[in-house]
Amino acid sequence: MTTHAPTPISATKRSFTAALCLSAAMLMGGSALAAGSSDTDAERLERWRDIAKSIFGDRTIEPTDALIKVDAPPRALDASLVPITLMMPEKDRIAAVHLIIDDNPSPYAAHITFGPAADPSEVKLRVRINNYTNVHAVAETKDGKLYEAVKFVKASGGCSAPMGMSDEEALKGAGDMKMKFAEGGQGKPTEATLMVRHPNFSGMQMNQVTRDYTPARYINKLDVSSNGTLVFSMNGDISIASNPVINFALAPDAKGPIKVVATDNQQGRWEHSFNTPTPSN
């Protein structure tokens, strides 16, 4: 298997992201018109090329309608909680997936690497979308090739949407986790839903009491393992919605307790274990 490491979501980038988010919030000034709503297809394509080069360098990315698909609402009901489904029909070929929201202040939303205990056929998560934008999903195959799918979503202001509570209230119970399982049956994948309590402050949200911008604080890594074997590892950024919810599937032969380790960009760390259901016929 050939491995290719993408440009990491580094500490330097995170500092830049916080500054960029604050500038974007100030520039928005409550404008109802999404900044990207009038962009042409050519402008969007040029922006995507720049983003892809910054993440993947000179590697070739081929379009596909078979290896990965993106399902998202054409118009978001809530720009701060946009459901995204990544479907990978040829799951045995997939090593990782990259989620990029082109017009967000920090476009590289998530990088998910699958382990031996995963069934990578489908992943669901919720994101923030700040402008009318293309959402790109790039599948990385086990032989190191890249394939992209894209979906256009109309949304505005998701990164700056307030929490509706004080920062202190939003941080209460940070790191608490729950996991639900849907019984897959003998020899079938087990679907799981991981819920993590964390405000995932974007750096663009204004504290409704102090009128200052809340510093960015968000989960930057999730590691999920089954009996010591990796299910998936996800590096995230400010585009992941508050109180992250991740739907994924365990391989049919994955056995034993599920361990989840979450960290955030301010040295927060939390670890929880969950018992998996016993398969039935």
Rank of each mutant, 00 (worst) to 15 (best):
T3P: 02
T7W: 01
A11S: 11
R14F: 10
F16L: 15
A18S: 14
A18R: 09
A19K: 10
A19N: 10
C21F: 06
G30E: 01
G30H: 05
A35F: 13
S37E: 13
S38G: 11
T40I: 07
D41W: 07
R47G: 09
R47S: 15
R47W: 11
W48R: 15
W48V: 15
R49V: 13
D50T: 15
K53P: 02
S54M: 12
S54E: 11
F56R: 05
T60S: 09
P63S: 10
P63G: 11
T64N: 00
T64S: 14
A66I: 03
A66M: 08
A66K: 10
I68Q: 04
D71Q: 12
A72F: 03
A72S: 08
P74K: 08
R75N: 09
S80N: 11
S80G: 12
S80A: 15
V82T: 09
P83S: 10
I84K: 04
I84F: 06
I84N: 05
M87G: 09
M87Q: 14
M88V: 11
P89D: 14
D92L: 10
R93C: 03
I94T: 05
A95H: 06
A96Q: 08
A96Y: 04
V97H: 06
I100Y: 01
D102S: 15
D103M: 09
N104V: 00
A110C: 14
T113M: 09
T113P: 03
G115C: 11
P116Y: 00
P116Q: 07
A117M: 06
V123P: 01
K124M: 15
K124V: 14
R126G: 07
R126Q: 10
V127D: 07
V127H: 06
V127L: 10
N130E: 15
Y132G: 12
K142F: 02
D143M: 03
D143K: 04
L146F: 15
E148F: 09
A149Q: 09
A149T: 14
K154E: 13
A155F: 03
A155H: 03
S156H: 12
G158D: 01
C159K: 01
S160C: 08
P162A: 09
P162M: 07
G164D: 05
E168I: 15
E169W: 06
A170F: 04
G173L: 09
K180L: 09
F181P: 05
A182L: 12
G184N: 06
G187E: 00
T190G: 00
T190S: 00
E191A: 14
A192E: 00
T193F: 04
M195Y: 03
V196E: 00
P199H: 04
N200E: 01
N207F: 08
Q208R: 08
T210E: 07
D212Q: 12
T214E: 07
T214Q: 07
T214C: 08
N220F: 07
L222R: 07
D223Q: 14
N227T: 05
T229L: 08
T229Y: 01
L230A: 13
V231M: 00
S233Q: 14
N235M: 13
N235Q: 13
D237G: 03
A241T: 13
L250P: 00
A251H: 12
A251W: 00
P252Q: 01
K255F: 06
G256Y: 02
P257M: 05
I258E: 00
K259A: 14
V260D: 06
V260Q: 05
V261F: 05
V261E: 12
V261W: 02
A262Q: 08
T263F: 03
Q266D: 08
G268N: 05
G268D: 03
R269I: 14
W270I: 12
F274P: 01
N275L: 10
